[in-house]
Design a protein around this nucleic acid. Structure first.
Lengths: 360, 360
DNA sequence: CTGAAAGCGCTAACAA
DNA sequence: TTGTTAGCGCTTTCAG
């Protein structure tokens, strides 16, 4: 005798592989092969199974398949923020690459970059097969070390503003362009995301390019843009501050982000400066902003690079070989309307670094 | 006799619950309880187990736990893009809310909004327990229908530009502000993401507010900004196009996004218009851009709303109750420097809708 | 308070 | 070509 009527807990207990096997009159093993497109299944059998699975709305459970295979077919994308176009573009690029290969994307949004020495929970729980780390400074030394020890495939993508050579490379490209135009007094605006230590190499370091700067009598001022007011107002203030300095003024500004470039542009226009006649401006990131404003910029192709990283990761996972580093990337210069030769000749020849803190 | 020596396949087969149980001299059941903080474990036992687990670097496998419990402790966040600040902010808001509760976030980045009538694979594979849908137009009717049928908890968040009442509500707020300032000739710029059908209600629909507009003799022009050149240049062009129209010109513009507001601002300034004396501008989204440019704007608090949605979803999941709709949201107006009373009095009284297509 | 044992749903040898 | 049989690692009654 059946127990007194009770409502079922769930409406649709979702068909399992056994249901399909039973309906098709085959074993679960065959269903599994058929559905995954593996060989050793007769064509008619496969067709029938597929139809039945379709009718039953069957899809393998990720948990069960993951337990059995040890693979989750999902990769973790580590980022510290989505507020910068370069980052959200990178996530989007990765998302597309992964979707193309039927992998899932688990977003590992870390609160404060490298706040904890622990690896994210999703990694420890093996919810992801591999990690795509966006920005060289996103994970701390210890975390990267643990990654290497754990043997989890991972790929780190250099993104602007992340204690990375990317900044140096991009800034170098911009500077080269300006120097070629005849500028000898430059300013480089970068934000709190940038690594002062690395960047300052540009002004005082021992690199070949740096010494070349000195020899050529080029003056480069580094302006650290800080403050919680957002990149645009902060860089406006920083620009004002720079302009209030005694002595000669730079004839060109390199900005570490589009937002900063906009801030400088707005403030310069407010001061009545003509762009590029009075001041050349170079932006970075290659997002809509610079394009729209007709600003010359160094672009990073974050989305494309993230997609490449993802692909390289997948190749490593499926081929069971090591992660291959994609072709070396170099920043690209897009010359638009915001750069031109300076109005006057060279000015001073003393390299200097100034700090320009904004309130808040 | 043991088989001939062979190298192990993996370096660190990662400790399992059995390893911990063995090392602690207890059963796996006890380890499971201890680690998850469940009752019925003696304090000393619990402590010992925790220490051993720590030493062994044990973390439960997500797949195994998922299989056993039927829950994945991860939710899917559905979005069609990350390129708009409102969207990436929403994702970030959701990420933080989920991280606070130790849930994982699977990013379901759909290619073309509602391109396929199918639910995303991750949903069918039960890789996620619930869905947070960003933007009312992100999922198609059929998909939403399937969601409801499948009983998967889901929450849809209205975001600007997504065939949603949000647009109407926000635009209404902006318009009310402008009318109160004395404007009688307005233009509303919106993009391809916006739903023309809904929006046009503002100009010709039967709503109380709409008729009020008519009665008050307010003229509202709807400008559809299109073109693949990005929101900023497109809206510049659209503004130029609008300004080239014969007849009276609007004294205020409402923009459906920050980017459009910037485009209008730039183009207006290029035409020598003073903001807000000659033209009032209202932006939307409340992102850095409007704040930085001192633009009056209607803000959506996407991040906060997404976080609320996530919380409501988690409450439903854990409490096993239905998804509760959070408190009704209404767009908020932040008055800054870009709006003021019109220089001249009312102009015309004919409502009209113009299309302003930009090339490409 | 603790343990034994039966799965969760699928995959992967190995047989047939 | 197909089926049988073990698990995968954890959770969860139900006894003890």
């Amino acid at each position: 005798m059946l127990p007194a009527g009770r409502t079922t807990r769930t409406r649709h207990p979702k068909a399992s592989i056994e249901d399909v096997a039973a309906a098709a009159g085959v074993s679960t093993a065959t269903v599994s092969r058929a559905i995954r497109g593996l060989p050793r299944v007769a064509q008619p059998t496969r067709t029938r199974i597929l139809e039945i699975a379709q009718a039953l709305g069957y899809t393998a459970s990720a948990s069960a398949a993951g337990l059995a295979t040890g693979k989750t077919r999902s990769i973790g994308v580590v980022t510290s923020s989505l507020r910068y176009p370069a980052y959200s573009a990178a996530v989007e690029g990765a998302a597309q690459a992964l979707r193309d290969r039927d992998y899932s994307l688990v977003l590992l949004h870390l609160p404060h970059p490298s706040a904890s020495p622990q690896l994210p929970t999703d990694v420890n729980m093996r919810r992801v097969d591999a990690l795509l780390v966006l920005g060289a400074g996103t994970l701390g030394k210890e975390q990267i070390g643990q990654l290497q020890r754990s043997g989890i495939p991972h790929f780190v993508i250099g993104l602007p503003g992340t204690q990375d050579d990317v900044d140096v490379a991009a800034a170098t490209t911009a500077i080269r362009h300006l120097v070629q135009l005849g500028h000898t007094d430059l300013a480089f605006f970068h934000g709190r995301l940038a690594a002062a230590s690395r960047i300052s190499l540009l002004a005082a370091g021992p690199g070949p390019w740096t010494s070349a700067l000195h020899e050529a009598g080029i003056k480069l001022r580094e302006v650290r843009v800080e403050g919680g007011a957002g990149a645009i107002p902060s860089s406006r203030k920083a620009f004002s501050c720079l302009w209030a300095q005694p002595g000669s003024l730079p004839t060109a500004v390199v900005c570490a982000s589009d937002e900063m470039a906009l801030g400088v542009l707005l403030e310069a226009e407010r001061k009545g400066l003509k762009i590029p006649a009075d001041l050349s401006i170079v932006g970075m990131d290659g997002q809509d902003l610079c394009e729209s404003l007709e600003l010359t910029a160094v672009i990073h192709y974050s989305a494309r690079r993230a997609a490449q990283g993802a692909q390289s990761l997948l190749a490593a996972l499926e081929g069971d070989r090591d992660v291959t580093t994609p072709a070396v990337w170099s920043p690209e210069l897009v010359v638009r309307q915001s750069t031109a030769a300076p109005r006057n000749g060279p000015t001073s020849t003393v390299a200097a670094t100034i700090e320009c803190r904004t309130s808040t």
